[in-house]
């Protein structure tokens, strides 16, 4: 009986490892469905619409506000050193290298990832996935894989828009509100940002986060309990797990690959 806590620890560890294995298996099945016929192009369109187009307002608005906030924050620090011309560098590098991909991924997880998990979990609860299996249609092929691919595809596009909007927001606040010279803002921005280092790194992060969110949201929906509580648990844990994994992956991407 004294070994009970250690036994529990062992069991929990095995559960975590099992989930990793299942997620990997799930990912392989999704990829296998995507590369074999039939290609669910119409389904993909609908999912890109749901995950991408409907996320546009929130992503663009957040981008503009984040850029403006960075300008305000950076200005108060930089002006003490008489270096307010470097505001473009500050806003550009922080948004492109870090905030753009991470914040967009978190926003998309909250807006689209949770919706995808809830939708799939509801289909599990109402036995729609079983219905598909009855008609000999693989639910991973028909429902899951277009959604996962849609998230992977829309993420870089949304990150690009987020960054452009935050640069505009940052420029607007810097030039309109704080009286920084517009020319020096853009020239310090363009001087500091490099294509291979910063822009490529930013979009490789975006693609990683997109794939991660897509995989976690669909997997968590797919394995949910067929109850009302199961749907809500799937939604919640999708947001929690995906957000935490995005932040953890971001750390390792920064640390190991220097992006």
């Amino acid at each position: 009986m004294r070994a009970k806590p250690i036994e529990n620890l062992g069991f929990q560890t095995l559960m975590v490892i099992e989930h990793f294995g299942r997620i990997a298996q799930f990912g392989v099945r999704i990829v296998a469905c995507l590369v074999t016929r039939p290609y669910r192009f119409r389904r993909l369109m609908a999912d890109v619409f749901d995950a991408g187009v409907l996320s546009l307002p929130v992503v663009c608005l957040s981008g503009a506000v984040v850029g403006g906030t960075l300008s305000l924050l950076g200005y108060t620090t930089l002006v003490r050193f008489g270096a307010e011309e470097a505001l473009g560098t500050l806003v550009g590098l922080s948004v492109i290298r870090e905030l753009g991909p991470v914040l967009t991924a978190l926003l998309v997880t909250g807006r689209a990832g949770s919706a995808i998990a809830a939708e799939i979990a509801t289909m599990v609860t109402t036995e729609q996935l079983d219905g598909l299996r009855m008609m000999s249609i693989d639910p991973i092929d028909f429902v899951v894989s277009p959604k996962a691919l849609a998230l992977l595809l829309v993420m870089p596009l949304l990150v690009g828009l987020f960054i452009v909007f935050s640069l505009m927001g940052g420029y607007g606040v810097a030039v309109g509100l704080l009286g920084v010279d517009g020319g020096s803002f853009t020239s310090s921005l363009k001087g500091a940002v490099e294509f291979w280092d910063d822009v490529v790194g930013s979009f490789s992060k975006a693609i990683t986060f997109g794939g991660l969110t897509g995989l976690i949201a669909t997997y968590r929906g797919y394995i949910s309990e067929p109850t009302a509580a199961g749907v809500s648990a799937a939604t919640t844990s999708t947001v929690v797990i995906a957000s935490v994994s995005i932040l953890v992956f971001d750390f390792f991407l920064n640390g190991f690959w220097g992006v």
Binding site: V48, I96, L157, L167, V193, E194, V199, S202
Partner: peptide, 19 residues
């Protein structure tokens, strides 16, 4: 949406990134 996203990536790469 796709065009807009690609345009923003292109802008970031060529204009801002100096490619």
């Amino acid at each position: 949406f796709v065009l807009l996203g690609l345009a923003s990536i292109g802008y970031l790469s060529i204009e801002v990134g100096g490619l």
